[in-house]
């Protein structure tokens, strides 16, 4: 069996494989020797306190931040040679933290921007996709022609996630989707994450709301000061002494 065919079989089960990456700014290493994987159909979460380096990991996967060491494989292919837009063409989609939307553009335009990789397709393909996405986020339908900066924080987060889904992701990466939102809205966001997952989209979730994230995750990793200190199933991590003591105040 050739190396290529082995890689292809490997890629059938493992969506993303991060191998010993080191990321830093100048001489300072923010992420050190981090390895993890996301398999098909999984929700995997990376949890940790503010400043642990969670967002940096996501940015490095999509290519917005360069690696100093290690490599990232997506569906069996090394991503090192690809620019951010080429990685996204291959199906990795990042929804940045803080519900970042294009405030001066309408909801419709924001969704169209999410379909960048289908820009050469017929308009009807994109409109069909918008319809599908708005079934998950009905609130967007009501305000379709409004400017995004007129929306509440929760609605913006919904829009950011919907925009991410417009790219028909093979892997959806959510960066702190609950950041700065009221508990009721957070409930809604987590419900939506499960709906997206039920449609077969693997999710890599980065969160500070550790309990909520581990509850819905198949597997999780605990990140401290740029290093993974613990890994296991969501339930295992919830029961671990380290997580209870350091993050859940128990």
């Amino acid at each position: 069996m050739t190396l290529l065919s082995l890689k292809l079989i490997w890629g059938m089960f493992i969506m993303l494989r991060v191998n010993g990456i080191q990321v830093g700014y100048g001489n300072m290493a923010v992420i050190r020797d981090v390895s993890f994987r996301v398999d098909k159909g999984e929700i995997v979460t990376i949890v940790g306190s503010n400043g642990a380096g969670k967002s940096t990991i996501l940015k490095s996967i999509v290519g917005l931040v360069g690696l100093k060491k290690g490599n990232i494989e997506f569906m069996g292919e090394d991503m090192g040679k690809y620019q951010p837009h080429e990685r996204i063409e291959r199906g990795i989609v990042l929804v940045p933290e803080g519900g970042k939307v294009f405030g001066r553009l309408t909801i419709k335009d924001n969704l169209y921007l999410g379909s960048y990789k289908y820009r050469k397709e017929d308009k009807s393909v994109i409109e069909e996709r918008i319809e599908e996405v708005m079934e998950i986020f009905p609130v967007l339908k009501e305000r379709y022609h409004s400017r995004a900066d007129t929306m509440s924080g929760g609605e913006r987060q919904m829009l950011a996630m919907a925009r991410g889904l417009m790219g028909n992701p093979e892997l959806l990466m959510l960066d702190e989707p609950s950041l700065g939102l009221a508990p009721k809205i957070v409930d809604k966001i987590f419900e939506v994450i499960q709906v997206i997952h039920s449609k077969g989209v693997p999710i890599l979730l980065v969160e500070q709301q550790i309990h909520r994230a581990l509850e819905i995750a198949d597997r999780g990793y605990v990140l401290q000061d740029g290093v993974i200190v613990l890994e296991g199933s969501g339930q295992e991590l919830l029961n671990s002494e380290l997580v209870k003591k350091a993050y859940l105040g128990m």
Partner: peptide, 25 residues
């Protein structure tokens, strides 16, 4: 045009535009 649409996205938030796959360069 479509190009202008992406230029405006770039002007609003380059990082988000990049995260959506817009070829920034």
């Amino acid at each position: 045009s479509k190009t202008g649409f992406y230029l405006r996205a770039l002007g609003e938030n380059e990082e988000v535009a990049a995260s959506l796959g817009v070829n920034i360069a």
